[in-house]
Design a protein around this nucleic acid. Structure first.
Length: 424
RNA sequence: GGACAGGUGGCCGAGUGGUUGAAGGCACCGGUCUCGAAAACCGGCAUACCGGUGAACCCGGUAUCGAGAGUUCGAAUCUCUCCCUGUCCGCCA
């Protein structure tokens, strides 16, 4: 969410930001409307507060007279009239603020100046690691998974629906191993606090991290309560300190959590849905950091490196892609995608999206810190990234580490957890 | 799910329908004292929004005592609904 001052004083920057996202045309009317509403909001506030001040003064006089045993009928009459006006103006104000905030909640963040303009075609590969296997025939993961009895797609679909996966045997153990490896590395080597979170969150949390209101149709909603299944542990982790003020000494704050993630993937039907590529429920270890505005840029580099470390340990070739403005997510100001190469599918698969949200989420979720120099509380900057998402990692493992004899070589770092060097 | 008891500032805690943004204490910050520290004493110490020239400082105003609605000239204080916490009972992994 943007500061109202942005609308009032930096409207050109806001428009330019929307243009860089390629969204100005669609959003221009909303921005114009916000400007109008902001003006009328302030006018109404002035009018209503003036009357409230008058009423407070009159009421005090009533009190004085009554204590003196005098009648105050005339003043009460006056106060009642003011009260009626106040009620009317308050309703007007509430309506204005409701509309204004609904507009503000649906405007995306502005990307940083360092982010290239344009759409997906302007994304930049900033580095690659490892060597993709190309020109070799590799069995796709859904075939390997079925052949080795690691994944039971049919029964997953039977008990839950398409896009729900059953892992079994060494496959199930692989999921558990990935969880332990990632959490161990992030807590022991990267200094994150391990958190175990609820997977059901309330509406305020979903608004805080900006899944709502815009993406409600992508969320699994509970039927009897105003609550949702989390699409990522980002939601509970980032909202952990919602409506709180942290001392600056606690920054940067680093938290990690494993969680299942639930996504309806509305409108994505038929696109890259084969095997494990796009599913409705999956597992993920998430990294979240809070930082000061001055350090959030470096913090993003750090967080991205932490996610990359896992790919290196798994010996999977990957590339880091700096997303262009138009391809950057709604709440993000800057995003690096980590893409792993799956040699069976023959594609780069996104396994992590590392973002700096600047104060966009912090403003929605009201997460602030008290500066060490004693100044006014400021909004923190929030960052997060997957570290990493399991299904595509499993796909890449089953494809990249596949041997000519069809066996899968387990990367060194995973062997202790999995208790095997090869899957056959 | 049922029955009680509660939700007040960073924390503890007082609060009568009327100068209560809210006594008192703790914590914290500044000062006096001290060679230094402790103690003692003095002072300061919420947030958001609106306005006063844009910014800093400052000044004025409004709102905030779990949330919302109501009664009233006036609500932390009365009424209703909801949320949350505690205790007991029931149920349950």
């Amino acid at each position: 969410m943007h500061d109202l001052r942005m609308v009032r004083e930096h409207i050109d920057a806001l428009r330019a930001g929307m243009r860089r996202r390629g969204a100005l045309e669609v959003l221009a009317p909303a921005i114009d409307r916000a400007v109008t509403l902001d003006k009328s909001r302030r006018d109404t506030i002035q009018a209503v507060e003036e009357r409230k001040a008058a009423r407070n003064a009159v009421s005090q006089q009533v009190g004085q007279r009554k204590r003196a045993g005098e009648s105050a009928d005339d003043l009460q009459q006056q106060s009642r009239a003011l009260g009626d006006e106040i009620a009317r103006l308050d309703r007007e104000l509430a309506e204005t603020e409701r509309e204004l905030s609904s507009i503000l909640l649906e405007l995306p963040n502005v990307t940083l100046d360092s982010v290239p303009g344009g759409g997906e075609e302007s994304n930049v590969v900033v580095r690659t690691w490892g060597q993709p296997r190309e020109g070799v025939r590799v069995e796709p993961h859904w075939e390997v998974g079925a052949r080795l009895g690691l994944i039971d797609f049919e029964r997953g679909a039977k008990i839950s629906g398409s896009g729900f996966i059953v892992f079994r045997g060494a496959g199930a153990r692989l999921v558990r191993s990935l969880m332990n490896l990632m959490l161990d590395v992030h807590t022991r080597e990267h200094g994150y606090e391990e958190i175990w979170v609820p997977v059901v969150v309330n509406r305020a949390s979903m608004i805080g991290t900006a899944q709502l209101p815009k993406f409600e149709e992508d969320m699994y909603a509970l039927k009897d309560e105003d609550a949702f299944l989390i699409p990522t542990a980002e939601v509970p982790l980032t909202n952990l300190y919602r409506d709180e003020i942290l001392p600056e000494s606690e920054l940067p704050k680093a938290m990690t959590a494993y969680s299942p993630c639930f996504r309806r993937e509305a409108g994505a039907a038929g696109k890259d849905t084969r095997g494990l590529l796009r599913v409705h429920e999956f597992d993920k270890v998430e990294l979240v950091r809070y930082a000061t505005p001055e350090t959030s840029g470096q913090q993003l580099e750090l967080l991205t490196a932490h996610a990359e470390k896992i790919l290196q340990l798994l010996q999977l070739p990957y590339r880091v892609v700096q997303l262009a403005s138009g391809d950057t997510g709604f709440a993000s100001a800057q995003t690096y995608d980590l893409e792993v190469f799956a040699s069976g599918v023959g594609k780069w698969l996104e396994v992590s999206s590392c973002s700096n949200f600047t104060d966009f989420q912090a403003r929605r979720a009201n997460i602030r810190y008290k500066p060490a120099d004693g100044g006014k509380p400021r909004f923190v900057h929030t960052l997060n990234g997957s570290g990493l998402a399991f299904p595509r990692i499993i796909a890449a493992l089953l494809e990249h580490h596949q041997q000519p004899d069809g066996a899968i070589v387990v990367p060194e770092a995973l062997r202790g957890y999995l208790g095997a060097e090869r899957l056959t």
